[in-house]
Design a protein around this nucleic acid. Structure first.
Lengths: 347, 347
DNA sequence: TTGAAAGCGCTAACAC
DNA sequence: GTGTTAGCGCTTTCAA
């Protein structure tokens, strides 16, 4: 029963013609069966499947792509290095893509500036993809590529123009706002913000959510501190903020920066959460097990990936019909131990 | 200068024949230039490149693959969910693959049992790849697939037989041994072990490194506790171990399990590192910023990915020449604050 | 150093 | 329901 057993290993791989011959049908019928097309008798279908199995037949995707003009592959431009966020999003994208019956090509771009993104897109287009996913691109200038396949921008507005452009929000703005409001609700007079690199769209988005919350409550808007997503940058920011006694609450744009920040605060003798409250951003569950457990805003990576790929595949396969209505991603703030009411006011 | 500007967007994409025509050469010469083959005059090369640029020409990989039988693509069977280890390895593989001039296809397999791996390999083979990378497969039964491309097993022995099989070690055994020895050197009478799922090869490898260290020193071998890589499983294991006063040192097979473990120990009133020392495994730098900072064994992901892809590409391109000699991956134990000498003996 | 012809394995369009 | 014919865009002979 093991496919290929007994077949001479040096023999050329079987082609659809071999299957057709063995099944006693034409190549076209084989093709129909393999593509689940209608108008094939059950009997023919059965014989084809049996013959394919018996020969250990594997369809040649390159030939199919060449003949059909479609690759059944989705390309992803992944951003940044091995952070939890990127990795998590990628896993969910892979899953959604495979569920949809597509293959996945990935190109990573350590820095997501327009030029690198353009290069990555160009690479994917040349490799052959039916659509492209760009995750959280950095905004800063225009990307100029000729793109004739649909493009999905995850968690950011379009960074370049394509034939068909889709956008799926990851609700970062609302999450940032919810995180900030949580701190204000606890009684903090204001909330400081440790942002990601400000040239990243993701950073701006979170920053605006934070700012919107402060504006809505009429709270003072302290200057923003800029990090680079790394725990080291959070640590550096923490040293700075620790020296300012007015700082009682900080919203960090990433969990890892939050961890570095908390470490610096404690080194400076400021307790978390008794003296300073900290909220992170991402939702990595490992930070539930540190001391103090990190309160954080969970990004709905899975929902966003599913929804995005669903819309993308729809655009590939039924370009003329309307897209299904968007599903709003869930907003989830995970309350743990790093936040508390502010310390009593020290005249 | 922008490629494609001014070209009618609805016009068919230019083919190599169009480039040949514009450059005044044959299609074969265009092909030679694009593949960096010898025997092309500088003049012809220049004209071809210029024409390609002018037309915004993009080579069709599907056609090339069909004609040449080579895809210039490497497929990766990625294991597990979004852990730091997997993600980090993947990023380094992507980098190495791209440096080598290859494209990347990825199939993820949440559980790495033989059947899932066989399915993933089959999928990649059908999509078309020149080689396959299998990262840290689980051992448990045989995988039966007919594989006629070279396969690289990263951090584990071959999980199935292929035409050509390569192996690159991630030095987990040595790292586990070094981690255990570090604890013994501090004066601990023995070291407990929190392992990953024992059906994973990676778990067994680390377990054996731990056991080898104990054997070499003639230390008692306590029963192994089994986790599932998650911080929650580390936490559960920690509750168990905390109740045993003989436990003064634990080597955890993953950083995240170590974090959960430490949390449980502290909840039970056992201080880390004063009462119990803990060493993790992976090397995620964020855990340098928690309290206490985690001592851990850093896995040489980058070195292993580079070395593995280098050997794989050699096997694809020069199958008849000898492989370059293997480069031993570096062993790196990162000493931080979660380890200390054992507490004074309590008669 | 270059080119002409043949064909990679599949699907599209159209006949039956 | 099924088969026939003609390519998809490239590389591979092999000849010049």
């Amino acid at each position: 029963m093991t496919p290929g057993v007994g077949r001479n290993t040096d023999a050329p791989a079987p082609r659809s013609a071999d299957v057709a011959h063995l099944a006693g049908v034409s190549r076209k019928t084989v093709s129909r069966v393999l593509n689940n097309e209608p108008y094939v008798s059950d009997e023919a279908r059965r014989r084809v499947l049996e013959a394919a199995e018996q020969l250990g037949y594997r369809l040649n995707h390159a030939a199919r792509a060449l003949a059909s003009g479609r690759t059944r592959t989705i390309g992803v431009v992944a951003l940044g290095t091995a952070g939890y966020g990127t990795a998590s999003l990628l896993v969910h994208i892979e899953h959604a893509v495979r569920d949809a019956g597509y293959a996945l090509r990935i190109v990573n771009t350590p820095d997501g500036d327009p030029k690198s993104i353009a290069g990555a897109v160009e690479t994917l287009l040349e490799q052959g993809v039916d659509a492209i996913v760009v995750s959280e691109p950095v905004v800063e200038g225009e990307v100029s590529v000729r793109v004739d396949v649909p493009v999905l921008f995850l968690g950011a507005p379009p960074a370049f123009t394509a034939a068909r452009t889709l956008t799926v929000d990851i609700a970062a703005h609302q999450l940032a706002r919810a995180a900030t409001e949580h701190l204000l609700d606890l009684g903090h007079l204001t909330v400081h913000h440790l942002a990601g690199p400000l040239r990243w769209y993701a950073s701006k988005d979170r920053l605006e959510g934070w700012r919107a919350a402060l504006t809505a409550r009429g709270a003072r808007k302290p200057p923003v501190v800029e990090g680079d997503w790394s725990p080291a940058s959070g640590h550096a920011a923490g040293r700075e903020l620790a020296s300012d006694p007015d700082v009682t609450a900080v919203f960090a744009a990433g969990d890892e920066m939050a961890i570095g920040l908390i470490h610096a605060l404690r080194e400076a003798g400021r307790r978390v959460p008794q003296d300073v409250s900290v909220v992170g951003f991402d939702g990595n569950s490992v930070f539930a097990y540190i001391t103090p457990p990190l309160t954080t805003a969970r990004q709905p990576f899975q929902a966003a990936a599913r929804e995005g790929i669903r819309r993308l595949v729809h655009t590939i396969e039924k370009p003329d019909t309307d897209l299904p209505p968007p599903i709003d991603p869930p907003i989830e703030l995970i309350l743990r131990g790093s936040t508390a009411p502010p310390p009593p006011h020290q005249g």
